[in-house]
Design a protein around this nucleic acid. Structure first.
Lengths: 231, 231
DNA sequence: CGGCATCCATTTTGATACTG
DNA sequence: CAGTATCAAAATGGATGCCG
């Protein structure tokens, strides 16, 4: 199993040998916001058979990208976390997300699933370090029954699943609205004005939140085939 | 055909719906250094059946990531080139390459193929814009029977297949040596001293060449399972 | 709940032969 | 050279059952 390799001495090909199979990078995406339990992964990855999930997790473990952990008390339940090597796939996953946000995100289709964690990663993907050079703040997002937090510290950002210990600000909203906010299709201020979102906490931190991200204008791929380029 | 989709409203998943299938990103990689003919792609992608190559190219065309072009005179032969959307996958491919260079590039295995273009992309992946803020230079690399050039312009870099019009410097070497140079396992100065490489042209441009890239120290994944991380 | 094995219908792929 | 056609092997997905 999984002995299919591209057989190329190339950094990209070697990487895809490890994480290029179906579902693997999405599994990494799930783990980028913190350790996850087997059942949670299964719920997030609709369409992935349980056998395949087990096989992929074993593969990630064998290759040193993830490892099994026991969640701290009071949970004490098994979960999977990324190793340092796995964590460092973050930039690559975010690069794919940046491309997708610009070129592949139309409106949500009827049968598509959505999880707030995906939108959180999209926010992280468009974080502008310069805008946060002098900012230290923790934002907590409560979306439906999921909670995430963003820790912004002097030009760095980290998104994690679960509540924050001492959030400077808390934003509360529904799934649909959160998806729109993260994709830049709605403004937080508008959503709060509407009552489709509520925010509390440090007003200055909240004001700066919207300035931390620079989202692209979505483009329709079929609109720019550049038929002129002949070289 | 290709209607298998992850069904997730997520920028990463949507991207992988488009380019996540086997061989697709490697095809994009080939096209990142300029238009390529069908036969050249086939030679670069050993193991990819001709039927699959045709199907993937058609897919990329249909999705607006690549298009068919006619190479300028005197070639006048058909080839495939990336569209703007396809070109913008470059950062994602380079991010995968950066990860692979650090975590997945041991020494070359016996049965692995190698093409200089892959090493050229690796160089591009580790380009440090700050180091080239005040530099404008074109480097030509002649490796075996392949020629590439790097155009460095005020903090930007672009790698393309084929000779340069007015190179400031020309580096000539063999495939194995070039692979080592691009991966940072050998120094250009040493290789020239040995006679395993020759360089000519602007001495200042050549001196600065080695300073333009910041390569990582390779790490063995199996060496850092971080067994302590339990949260 | 977590995790893995089994069985089976569909897809995807890899390799090669074949055609304009 | 640029692709199509064909067929065997492998990967996927879905359901289901088992066991601690």
């Amino acid at each position: 199993m999984q002995q299919r390799t591209y057989g190329q001495y190339c950094a990209t090909a070697r990487t895809l040998d490890l994480v290029g199979e179906r579902w693997t990078l999405l599994l990494v995406r799930e783990l980028l916001t913190g350790p996850k339990r087997y059942g949670d992964l299964q719920r997030s990855l609709r369409g992935m058979g349980t056998g395949l999930l087990a096989a992929r997790l074993k593969h990630l473990e064998r290759e040193g990208l993830a490892h099994k952990v026991t969640l701290p008390a009071p949970a004490r339940t098994p979960a999977y976390a990324l190793t340092e090597a796995g964590e460092e796939l973050g930039p690559a996953v975010l690069a794919l997300a940046r491309w997708g946000t610009k070129w592949a995100m139309g409106s949500r289709r009827e049968d598509e699933t959505f999880h707030p964690g995906w939108a959180v990663l999209a926010m992280e993907a468009f974080f502008v370090p310069q805008e946060a050079a002098d900012l230290c703040a923790v934002y907590e997002f409560r979306v439906g029954d999921e909670v995430f937090h963003l820790r912004v510290e002097n030009g760095t950002i980290d998104a994690q699943h679960g509540p924050a210990q001492h959030p400077d600000a808390v934003i509360d909203t529904g799934e649909e609205m959160f998806a729109q906010l993260a994709e830049g299709r709605e403004r937080l201020a508008d959503a709060i004005g509407d009552g489709r979102a509520t925010a509390s906490g440090d007003a200055e931190a909240l004001r700066r939140l919207a300035t931390l991200f620079c989202l692209p204008v979505p483009v329709d791929r079929s609109a720019s085939p550049r038929p002129s380029e002949n070289c």
